[in-house]
Design a protein around this nucleic acid. Sequence first.
DNA 1: GGTATATGTAAACGCTGTTGACCTGTCAAA
DNA 2: TTTGACAGGTCAACAGCGTTTACATATACC
Lengths: 199, 199
Amino acid sequence: MVRPEETGGGSAPARGREATRARILESARELFTNEGYGAVSSRMIAAHAGVNVALINRYFGAKRGLLSEILREDGVFPGLIEGDPDTLTRRLAEHAVGRLYGEGTALQRALDHSSGDPDLQAVYEGRLKSAMLDPLSAYLGGDDAPVHASLVAAVLLGLTRVRLIEGATALRAYDRARLTGRVQALLDLCLADLEADDG
Amino acid sequence: MVRPEETGGGSAPARGREATRARILESARELFTNEGYGAVSSRMIAAHAGVNVALINRYFGAKRGLLSEILREDGVFPGLIEGDPDTLTRRLAEHAVGRLYGEGTALQRALDHSSGDPDLQAVYEGRLKSAMLDPLSAYLGGDDAPVHASLVAAVLLGLTRVRLIEGATALRAYDRARLTGRVQALLDLCLADLEADDG
DNA sequence: GGTATATGTAAACGCTGTTGACCTGTCAAA
DNA sequence: TTTGACAGGTCAACAGCGTTTACATATACC
């Protein structure tokens, strides 16, 4: 099976499943990165890729499928969980605070900015558990690990949410190092075993 | 100026600016409560109110205006901030945990469930600061009050977010009283002055 | 060569929020 | 009483969305 996409060196866009799929995916990634998710329509992606609109649904099921595929390839969450357990909360705190300052990949920033979209929420919903809660829970271990992981996720997601909603001006006006310290303290408390008061 | 809306006792829906406005608003509130925001279209609201679609935009500017008006009337956040300062975090924690268990008004629950919608986010964006961050900040007092308020907001919003995204099954499987205690501890830490390590 | 099968295209579907042109009933002034 | 103004309401359309269906075409195999 010789695919034609490697035979033609002409100016016409390559045909063939893989080439077309890749072209759509690349266009979507670029547009999502520059414009956000909700601001980019299926037709815009198709036009940018030089491809018919229907092919998006043919190859990715729906616009949402494009997003899902991109996040699958790039990974929703960077590999913060692996590493020295003693500095886990430090790493998470630094990452979360960094996000407040607009750090992270361009795609991450773009998606943070349009994270209100129901599609995005649905895709995250499918990935957060498998990409964050479960690994974190397994990493922590113990009976209360799922609770600890959920609380950590709550703090991290909440910081993103505050940034989304009010720009986190108050937090960014604070000293960054101290803010990081405070967040880390919160995360440590999320992970603490509080059996003392219950016995 | 005798308005006709109080003269007719017949079966025809009352006309007149105020009556129509109220009917649209009431229909929107009911539908939003039962179906969520995104699932309800302008035409559905108009049909339910027995009114032409165009009147929604005439009286409320846009669909978003309806939501904004409803939230303005009902108040986005209940009066949790007022009261004994010593039990503030307790009240907030109980409220937040209660939300995890599906408590709160029907409208609150419905809007929580469709909080991904960009319209909803925009309206919240306009209200969160004035209805939560600013009062809380003023209530707390002190130089770091804005930071404390933002952190509190982050924890509260994060819990909502976790519930949205994974149903908060892990948190609800935990003992409710202990969960409330943990959340309160987090909130207390948000409000704590951590000047010790800095001098 | 003939034919099945992938690949791409064009046009529509049903829906959305929103708007502009048009009626219509009521009220005030002439 | 006639006229005009105007608020209130209706209708049909607009432009856009994501998605789908029917069709054309190019490729690969027998």
